[in-house]
Amino acid sequence: MIDKILQSPAAALADVPDGATILIGGFGNAGMPSALIDALIAQGARNLTVVNNNAGNADAGLAALIAARRVKKVICSFPRQTDSWHFDKAWRAGELELELVPQGTLAERIRAAGAGVGGFYTPTAFGTKLAEGKETRRINGRDYVLEMPIHGDYALIKADRGDRWGNLAYRKTARNFGPIMAAAARCTVAQVRETVALGAIDPEHVVTPGIFVQRVVKVAALRKAA
């Protein structure tokens, strides 16, 4: 019997090695898999490359991972926030490498990895600093920049419901990077609010099919949803 449901975040992340590339879902705090990040901090892996839209807010989640000095590189679109002090401090001290990527290019690079695409041409960032040194090409009179896929060793994502085959459904804007990160990582761990029986998620409403998910962990919601 296939059963991808594990009993704890710690069990789901026990094998993360030093130097791994970790895709972490979430846009701000929506979709941020906080329990998985806490477990990663406790697990102790170092020299991580982290891919997220942001670079941590306040003192929890990704910010705490950076504060614990486990991250050597961040690939993101928007590190600077009013409460990104842990990233700001580490970056200014030169302890952290930043690869800044336009948000849509970040999403498409992740999608490309999951879809087996070797690279793609995008008009975004042509003629800007973020395209410096990159191959460009004019296609039908328009200028494009060559961008490469971003593969993850692990993806840590948050969904609303999951079943033992790894099928996932999300809630509202917490979906954001979850589906594309799930497909782009060798091992995807989904933190879900609720584990359900096979069939409880209508096949028409499965957003991430279980083929993209290796581990599912139920984590009770801490905060109330309206």
């Binding site: 846009f27 705090n29 804007t173 949803a225």
Partner: peptide, 30 residues
């Protein structure tokens, strides 16, 4: 907390609205 806008402020969705993932969202833009 699961329904925010691009500025990460609390938001709402209208009748007829839809949710989608980031690659689709930027596919709409690009």
């Amino acid at each position: 907390e699961d329904l925010i806008d691009a500025g990460k402020a609390p938001a709402t969705i209208l009748q007829g609205g839809s949710y989608f993932h980031h690659a689709d969202s930027f596919g709409m833009i690009r």
